[in-house]
Design a protein around this nucleic acid. Sequence first.
DNA 1: CATATTGCATAGCTAAGCTATGTATAGTGG
DNA 2: CCACTATACATAGCTTAGCTATGCAATATG
Lengths: 151, 151
Amino acid sequence: MTHDLRTVLGDLVAVNSRLTRLAASASGNTESPAIWRTLAVLRDLGPVRLGELARASRVSQPTMTKLVHTLDERGWIRRIADAGDARAWLISADASGIAALNAWRDEIATVLEPTFADLTDDEVATLAASVEIVRARLERARAAMQAGEVA
Amino acid sequence: MTHDLRTVLGDLVAVNSRLTRLAASASGNTESPAIWRTLAVLRDLGPVRLGELARASRVSQPTMTKLVHTLDERGWIRRIADAGDARAWLISADASGIAALNAWRDEIATVLEPTFADLTDDEVATLAASVEIVRARLERARAAMQAGEVA
DNA sequence: CATATTGCATAGCTAAGCTATGTATAGTGG
DNA sequence: CCACTATACATAGCTTAGCTATGCAATATG
């Protein structure tokens, strides 16, 4: 059977919104999804300017300013003055931030595991493959956006 | 290669948080993800009480009261008095709500399509399979929770 | 050097999410 | 039948994510 890409994309977003709610409500985690999302982007990008981090995370710059502020309060990032530009900061994930991110992922996994425990190896592989497909496209979309800025 | 279920589950939530941001920011859609999530749950469950809808959606009852109010303002649901219980309402997705939900999915698809356009048939099938796996587990988690209430 | 542009911060708004609490109806023991 | 408890939804009040508009300081440019 052939699958319609458009339908799949819509379903993907819709279903994962519900999965996120399940994970959030089942875990007692008090931090917001945005915090973890930002940390994950930071981990993947390395030290970046706040503005670029905002664009990569697909949030507005003021929103990122607030998120970075919160992350800073937790001690999960470091703000490094940009040597060549006194206006800019380089935002870098602190080791404690990466540790917190890993702990969060572990917590999510523990909460969801019972529901997904009886997946076959093939099904787990399917999920893993999907994650990689989406991750690759997100990275490509980010790179394309960055290139578009230059043009 | 064998995949670690715990890692996959964490990555699944993390990656999809980013995908959701991409979809939200790239589309000019002003409605919130919660609205669409609620409508999707309503469509799948049929007419249900507000409280049960809240539990199925994994949000608190006051949060659902607000969402239902907003949905009602849009004309996307109907509130039907429960004949057997004057306290309760049966919430039902209106045809216009289903239409709006479909339009939203179409919009998401249009926005994401360029990024995913060159997926192979196999990759699309993998995404579709993942959606089905997650959807089935969500449904099972909901059913289990409902059964647990009775016990 | 004046002016425009850029990078981040601040202000102020809407909406999602929560807990605590209120109000009205159902159910129940006496 | 009446008092009491339990249930279903609404309201109040808070925090945080998200936005746009704007401000301020530093860089770049004519």
